[in-house]
Amino acid sequence: MTGARASGIERIAAAFADRKGRAALMPYVMGGFPSLAESTRIGEACVRGGADVIELGMPYSDPLADGPVIHAAGTHALAAGADVAGVLEVLRALSQEVAVVLMCYANMVFAPGARAFAERLQRAGACGLIVPDLPQGEEQEVLRACEQSGLALVPLVAPTTTPERMAAIGARARGFLYTVSVVGTTGERLALDEHLGEILARAKRSTEVPVAVGFGIGTPEQARQAADAGADGVIVGTRLVRAAAESEDPAGAVELVLAELAAGLAPGR
């Protein structure tokens, strides 16, 4: 499917609908890491490994929501020359195969203007946008811009989110609702938060779109636990970025890890 006529929002809905009885597998790929060409190959490896949706990271100078592994990868990507045009070319290539959502910090969205940024994303084939430092209360301009371009502005909720905020965020969520599983930045954890089921239940009650869990999920067991706790999708970032960083063959390494994660999510396991 090329998604030429389907809106980004529709394409994400289709990806969740097609996931064949398991939680959607949603790998994070840092655009431009270790190079633009290699990040495209990593994304393609993710598709082969069973990705339902890819979250493509735009490298940024000051990533406040990211832990050291993703921060370092972004710094490396910028030093290697990654820019918006280059990362959107990666996005364009991957969007031929799979629904792609861009993760991008607010200052880069506002730099050309939210409207222009959203239009550019749409032209590149993106389905949606995640802005980790654009909480409920600051989202209006970007939300309007995304709606005009048929893009899903995917909001985040955290374990600290109050019931009032959860209701408001869930109601305006498009594409999916990104549930942050831990109080903290991105990065692998030894164990999932003991209250994950509770957070997920709150998130699911607040919205009609699928609920995906991210931050702190790195092993097949954790992916499975998140799915068993009710997640419609499981986002894995740092584990994959680390695999890419540690290997001579980044795409191959990511494909292996992703296959293990997919097996962990397989029905009947």
């Binding site: 406040l64 607010a106 980790p132 909480p135 209360g137 985040l156 909720v157 600290t160 965020i169």
Partner: peptide
């Protein structure tokens, strides 16, 4: 302009 975690 901060992560949702900090808003409360």
């Amino acid at each position: 302009f901060v992560p949702e975690t900090l808003m409360p």
